[in-house]
Write a protein that binds this DNA or RNA. Structure first.
Length: 889
RNA sequence: GGGCGCAUAGCUCAGCGGUAGAGCGCUUGCCUUACAAGCAAGAUGUCACUGGUUCGAUCCCAGUUGUGCCCACCA
């Protein structure tokens, strides 16, 4: 029988031949290794078929909503998505188990410019361009792309185990969402929040569209700073020197600017100088934007090709001639016409040099240059007519919502970035000269009419009317995502039930692109913030903390690791690395380690089943339980509380860590080992322990489920016979604590560890049984004698018992008859080390307790602790000395 | 130029006023009847540097150095 059979056998919702589903299969038949690939797919499909992830808007349960940050349809999911999805899935799965009407709404983003570029690349490989196809056919082609790659993404989400509500899957270009876009556009237009203006914008000469400020990546590039003498023709006249890294723009210069207080140039202000290589005279203007300290203190002004120059041009009412076309090719009639901007740059510098006008050159000159974030082409500032969003009032509301706590940013330090942005935001260029996206709902009439059309209105028709050819920035539609996906502008049941959403889980890298915009639109349209909490996570990096990128060759396809180690292993690894707001390194070894953990859980549960662990019936009375039972239940309840707190604080790394250590160190390494003796002895104590072990695993598997859904589902159904852990109740703390039991087990652990250490030091074979007499000086250990003997391979002392080594541990003395096999030197060395450590401790604690100031000022519990430490050290020293004396030789 | 953060074991990271922690890696011994994807034992740190506050500082404060990120500017 393989794991798949297990999964099927334990599916008792179809039919339940026996009430004890788990016992239908003998647990001993389970494979000794967990094989995720066989289990995961079956389980996921079952969850979806049973509708576990479908939320009900009519439910009485309180809602819990997360909308997915819609992945771009440009490609496939990477580790960053896997990371983010793990957290969202864990959050919603837990809330679902807690009795919430949990909705995790999936979908994708049309990603205008990015997707259009991809399809254009595809076309280019076929030797075609979008122009060849025409707008309609091209858009059709992009839809095909969306089907293909969108499907791939959805498949990856299934593989990851994402518990999303597929019945509510959305796409930003769906008709409903498009309707939302048009509605918002119209409303904002009518409110004067969207307007058209001719300004300098960032233009990508390759994508052939305007892009917004944040779509420009600045990087340090080597350039050449040339100083050019303007004026002073052969007939004489005034001259001055300007410096530039973009000589080609001089063709569009319409002034030279100097600072108003700069005495060096005072005599030139108001006069003109000759613009080299042209027959134009341009004025010298005074403008305080100029920094007199920089360069020569004189600046060439090209209003149509530089944002600062544009402002100067506006202030001085300068002409603003464009000298390049949309591809960055010089259009000015003359020797440079038709040259690309970079060719023109060198040609112009060469021409100027020939005329002796280059007075200084500095190369390389490192300065930061803007690049298109989509295609890396150097951005060209360009004067053009675009649509804008007036962000002032929107950003104010978005900022206030966080300032007054209606939305909380987690971790809180990240709110600085958010405020920095919303408080200083410039107006947003929303029109794109693309074909893929939401077309701007504005029609132009033959007589210059401009009509913005709402979704229920007929656009004007007739001779000379045409729609604006541009589309909207893709972030416009994704900014509406939290409510457009729930049916807005219709007043749907979904909207009423699930808006505002609870938490946004996203990367800190898209605070500006997306988070701030959703906040703005949410406040504007819905008049309340779209989420209560913004949980920001970091970026996934490689095992050395290096950014994953194609050029480093360290990019990993999540599918590879999921195939090799299982989705659970990948998810657990990602969750373990998730400290709020910090980047997450991940390496294959770590995924392997998580796989090992899953396997450990698998085998421990398998062992439990083989030994009759059960969840049947009520938990026995504490009075019936052994200290071991009470200890593990006490610990379980503590861990449960910890996990809940960590969840509520988005501390995925901590909760993963807590569960990992509780499961492995406490339940598997100690409880299960101690229980073996109990099981072997049989009787009522064994029955009690079987029930306790069943309880512990039941709760543990439920706690682990949101992070590692597959292996927990397979095991939990096998253990409990329940339909699915997906719809099981989230465990509630019982308040059961037993400190005495915890202390007692701590002593057992200490005793066992001490003897193990002795055995290891003595080089005793683990299987070698050693006659021993447990001299129990403390009562608690008595109950554990059998278990201790078992763990330590001790056998009861015979008649001829002769203690050759005696290990005093807290509460007991273990006498061992090693029949002369003891390595006296090794033992002496070990004891010597222990003695030195104890003496050092005694010295330290004594010093502390002799310090008046310490005694006077330290809190009582600290002083008590030090006293205890001192007493322990004294006892240890005494004990070790006795041991040393007893050593033969 | 402005802002935020980080510096702890070989690596990746927790911790944070009262004896330095985890995972991986490493050493040694083990197929101990759930698991070798395992078990047991073990080694490893002037907690970046310099001062200050404190009975006590890895933790708080100031400065220094190194390092990462964000924003702005870069004629």
């Amino acid at each position: 029988m393989d794991a798949r059979t297990l999964a099927v056998v334990t599916d008792n919702t179809q039919q339940s031949p026996e009430p004890h589903g788990p016992h239908a299969a003998s647990p001993a038949d389970l494979p000794t290794q967990y094989t995720p690939a066989e289990v995961e797919e079956t389980l996921y499909e079952r969850w979806v078929e049973r509708g576990y992830f479908e939320a009900d808007a009519k439910s009485e349960k309180p809602p819990y909503t997360i909308v997915i940050p819609p992945p771009n349809v440009t490609g496939s999911l990477h580790l960053g998505h896997a990371f983010q999805h793990t957290m969202m899935d864990a959050l919603t799965r837990r809330k679902r188990m807690q009795g919430y009407e949990a909705l995790w709404l999936p979908g994708m983003d049309h990603a205008g410019i990015a997707t259009q570029n991809k399809v254009e690349q595809q076309l280019a490989e076929e030797g075609r361009s979008r122009g060849d196809l025409g707008r309609e056919a091209f858009v059709e082609r992009v839809w095909q792309w969306k089907e293909e790659y969108g499907g791939k993404i959805l498949g990856q989400m299934r593989r990851l185990g994402d518990g999303v509500d597929w019945s509510r899957e959305r796409f930003t270009m769906d008709s409903g969402l498009s309707r939302a876009v048009q509605t918002v556009f119209k409303r904002m237009y009518d409110d004067g929040l969207i307007y058209q203006a001719e300004r300098i914008i960032n233009w990508c000469p390759r994508c052939l569209t305007a892009i917004s400020d944040i779509e420009v990546d600045y990087q340090e590039d080597d350039g050449e700073l040339v100083s050019i003498r303007y004026g002073a023709t052969e007939e004489g006249g005034d001259s001055l020197v300007v410096a530039t890294t973009r000589a080609e723009t001089m063709l569009g210069d319409t002034a030279v600017a100097v600072h108003p207080d700069d005495e060096r140039y005072a005599h030139l202000v108001g006069r003109t100088v000759k613009l080299p290589l042209t027959d134009r005279e341009i004025p010298v203007v005074a403008d305080s934007h100029v920094d007199p300290e920089f360069g020569t203190g004189a600046v060439k002004v090209t209003p149509a090709h530089d944002p600062n120059d544009f402002e100067i041009g506006r202030r001085h009412e300068l002409p603003m001639p464009s000298v390049m076309d949309e591809r960055g090719v010089i259009t000015v009639h003359g020797p440079f016409e038709g040259l690309d901007r970079f060719e023109a740059r060198s040609a112009i510098v060469a021409a100027l040099r020939e005329q002796g006008r280059i007075v200084a050159e500095k190369r390389p000159y490192v300065h930061s240059v803007g690049h298109c974030s989509r295609c890396k082409t150097t951005v060209e500032p360009r004067l053009s007519m675009q649509w804008w969003v007036k962000v002032g009032p929107l950003a104010k509301a978005a900022g206030d919502a966080v300032r007054d706590g209606r939305t909380q940013i987690h971790p809180a330090e990240m709110s600085y970035r958010y405020f920095d942005w919303v408080d200083n935001m410039h107006d947003w260029t929303i029109s794109r000269q693309l074909w893929w996206g939401h077309r701007i709902p504005v029609w132009y009439g033959p007589d210059g009419e401009v009509v913005c059309v709402g979704p229920d209105e007929e656009p004007p028709s007739g001779e000379g009317w045409h729609q604006d050819p541009d589309v909207l920035d893709t972030w416009f539609s994704s900014g509406l995502w939290p409510f457009s996906t729930l049916g807005w502008p219709e007043r749907t049941a979904d909207l009423a039930k699930f808006y505002p959403t609870d938490v946004l889980v996203t990367g800190y890298d898209i605070i500006f692109f997306w988070v701030a915009r959703m906040m703005m639109f949410g406040m504007y349209v819905m008049e309340e913030p779209p989420f209560h909490t913004i949980a920001l996570h970091g970026l996934v990096r490689d095992q050395h903390g290096k950014k994953m990128s194609k050029s480093f060759g360290n990019v990993v396809d999540p599918l590879d690791w999921m195939e090799a180690y299982g989705s659970d292993a990948l998810r657990f690894t990602l969750a373990s690395g998730a400290n709020p707001g910090t980047d997450v390194p991940i390496g294959e070894d770590w995924v392997k380690a998580s796989r090992n953990f899953a396997n450990k859980v698998w085998n421990a549960t398998r062992f439990a089943l083989m030994n009759g662990a059960t969840v049947e019936g009520p938990l026995p009375d504490a009075a019936e339980m052994s200290a071991t039972d009470r200890w593990i239940l006490s610990r379980l309840d503590t861990v449960l509380g910890d996990v809940d707190r960590y969840y509520d604080d988005y501390q995925f790394a901590k909760l993963s860590d807590a569960l990992y250590h509780f499961a492995w160190d406490e339940v598997f390494d100690w409880y299960v080992e101690l229980a073996k003796t109990t099981f072997a002895a049989g009787g009522r104590p064994a029955e009690v322990s079987r029930r306790v072990l069943g309880e512990v695993l039941d709760v543990l598997l439920r706690l682990l489920h949101p992070i590692v859904p597959f292996v927990t589902e397979a095991l939990w159904t096998a253990l409990t016979g329940g339909a699915s852990v997906v719809v099981a109740d989230w465990p509630k703390p019982t308040g059961f604590r037993d400190e005495a039991a915890e202390q007692e087990i701590a002593v057992v652990q200490q005793a066992v560890t001490e003897v193990r250490r002795f055995r290891a030091d003595q080089g005793l074979q683990p299987g070698q049984k050693v006659p021993a007499r447990l001299e129990l000086t403390g009562t608690p250990l008595g109950a554990h004698e059998d278990a201790i003997r078992q763990l330590l391979r001790l056998q009861p002392a015979g008649e001829d018992f002769r203690a050759t080594a005696s290990l005093p541990v807290a509460g007991a003395t273990v006498g061992l008859d090693l029949s002369g096999a003891i390595d006296v030197e090794a033992e002496r060395k070990r004891l010597g080390k222990d003695l030195a450590a104890a003496e050092k401790e005694l010295k330290q604690t004594s010093a502390k307790l002799g310090n008046e100031a310490f005694l006077a000022k330290a809190p009582d519990h600290v002083v008590d602790k030090i006293r205890t430490r001192k007493a322990t050290a004294e006892a240890d020293i005494e004990r070790i000395r006795q041991q040393l004396e007893r050593l033969p030789g």
